[in-house]
Design a protein around this nucleic acid. Structure first.
Length: 481
RNA sequence: CGGGGUGUGGCUCAGCUGGUAGAGUGCUGCGUUCGGGACGCAGAGGUCGUGGGUUCGAGUCCCGCCACCCCGACCA
């Protein structure tokens, strides 16, 4: 084969690239740093969008769309925001062949243009809360890019909410990071650690940033979603005040939260193997592919394959038949494994005689015989549920195997390439920066997961592994994408 | 921006001390196959990244430029 996938063991990074390209998820574009999301990849995004969008609606949000272009003066209104984003912005200076009177920034995120509107829309506490989400593309000029994980342009959703009180905003921030955690774990089968970011890792312009952090198969960390408490920073920058219930005047409290097409990269790096993509059933476009073995009474085999597909489809399980005679069954097996379809059903004359079919699981390569009767849909449906759970359990077990507590800096340094390290930190940016400089590792998350907090005594006071100064609790360090 | 690498059929690449373009795979057609990437036969497909130079002659040698990839510094 010309498109052989490099093994994970040989070169993890190359494996990822080979997989993305051979599974036809994405392609490099002619524009530096940008990618083309191909139908196979976009289908995953559409599945993600559908599930997330429903969850946003359930939590009271509505969708809207704000412009791609942001006037330079808007970007400059919030001091930390401009400092954080300006260096990685694309700027439009000309339009219609003429220099523009004011430069337009291609949005790196939409807080500023959205708050310039919120200012007009919000006058009273009766206008609050305002709960808007948008599905959009954003541009951040990156020095080094990786397909899905970091490209100059990417797709995402960004929620922007406005609230009457600080407490409500805090609740919103937590509500949405929990939505992300639920989505990651239940749909992506990706266990994540929810918690706060350190001061230096938080969003430019936020008071506090919450995140969900996942572990990839090379033990590196990947930030899978963030939810920001923006306090009154943007309201003040855009002079967005409202009349309170008791007749006073106050600045509006804000949040923003987002996940991006990076999740597709996370999905790949968490579950896939050397044969190709492994998709959790809930995010696969099709859950089942049926490969008829075309020998003997071919017509009967093909007919049976289609009737199985119909039976499954009627039960809401996405199934397709590949009855083309262009490729051998072996070729098809390999191809659909590359594409990550969770279950393959093989059906041949032998099986028809025995009134069974063979189902092969993508996650662990096991093959089972399934009787061809009314129980088929339930059996397949159970199988899919089991695959979904197994992927999660496997990823969780992997993360736990690669999470350890360290109490000395020497231990830290010798184990930092082995996964997540739980360690005491004195809470200062200086220590964090020093550790990053010396080891390339950063504080990924200050966990707010009761189970983890209890297991590792996360909130117990101790001594910083780097400075030896007092620490109020432990945090998770790792090398990150 | 540093370090490394690569530009030759769609893809992966070979092409030596210069002599007029090659393989594998893919593609098209026909036939035989089909329970883990099948086989035979016949075909189509390339201004060798780009600009200049040396030469009777450049994919090959020299100089410039461009693009992309990988590794690092910045970041979802």
């Amino acid at each position: 084969m010309s498109e052989k996938i490099t093994s994970r063991q040989q070169d993890y990074s190359q494996w990822y690239i080979d997989l993305v390209r051979s599974a036809k998820l994405a392609d490099y574009s002619d524009v530096r740093g940008c990618m083309i999301i191909r139908p196979n990849g976009y289908a995953i995004w559409e599945k993600m969008q559908a599930a997330l969008d429903a969850m946003f609606k359930e939590t009271g949000h509505v969708n809207a769309y704000f412009p791609l272009f942001i006037p330079e003066s808007f970007i400059r209104k919030e001091a930390e925001h401009i400092e954080g984003f300006a260096p990685e912005c694309a700027v439009v200076t000309h339009g219609g062949g003429e220099p523009l009177s004011e430069n337009l920034y291609v949005r790196p995120t939409s807080e500023t243009i959205i708050w310039s509107s919120y200012r007009k829309w919000i006058q009273s506490y009766r206008d609050l809360p305002l709960l808007i989400n948008q599905w959009a593309n954003v541009v951040r000029w990156e020095m080094r890019t990786r397909l899905f994980l970091r490209t100059s342009e990417f797709l995402w959703q960004e929620g922007h909410t406005a609230h009457a009180t600080s407490t409500e905003a805090e609740e919103e921030v937590l509500r949405m990071i929990r939505v992300y955690k639920t989505f990651a774990e239940e749909y992506m089968a990706l266990p994540v650690i929810m918690g706060r970011k350190s001061e230096s890792e938080k969003f430019a312009g936020a008071v506090e940033t919450w995140c969900i952090e996942a572990m990839m198969q090379d033990t590196k960390a990947l930030q899978a979603g963030t939810s920001h408490n923006l306090g009154q920073n943007f309201a003040k920058a855009f002079d967005c005040k409202f009349q309170t219930r008791d007749g006073g005047l106050d600045y509006v409290w804000a949040t923003s939260w987002g996940v991006s097409t990076r999740l597709i990269g996370a999905l790949i790096m968490a579950h896939s193997d050397d044969k190709g993509l492994v998709l959790p059933p809930k995010l696969a476009t099709r859950q089942v592919v049926i490969v008829p073995i075309l020998r003997g009474d071919k017509e009967a085999v093909v007919a049976k394959a289609h009737s199985i597909a119909e039976q499954l489809n009627q039960a809401g399980i996405g199934a397709m038949v590949d009855d083309s005679d262009q490729n051998s069954p072996g070729w098809k097996f390999a191809e659909y494994e590359l594409q990550g379809i969770p279950v393959r059903i093989e059906i041949g004359p032998r099986d028809i005689k025995n009134n069974i079919c063979i189902a092969a699981r993508r996650d662990n390569a096991e093959k089972v015989q399934i009787p061809l009767d009314n129980s088929l849909t339930d059996t397949v449906s159970d199988l899919l549920r089991d695959i979904q759970e197994n992927l999660f359990d496997r990823a969780l077990a992997f993360r736990e195997e690669h999470t350890m507590e360290v109490s000395t800096y020497d231990d830290f340094k010798s184990n930092i390439d082995n996964g997540f390290l739980v360690a005491h930190w004195d809470g200062t940016e200086e220590t964090e920066a020093k550790i990053q400089e010396e080891t390339k590792a950063t504080i990924r998350v200050i966990p707010e997961e009761p189970e983890l907090i209890e297991r590792y005594g996360m909130k117990d006071p101790g001594t910083c592994i780097y400075s030896g100064k007092p620490s109020v609790g432990k945090v998770i360090f790792a090398k990150a994408y």
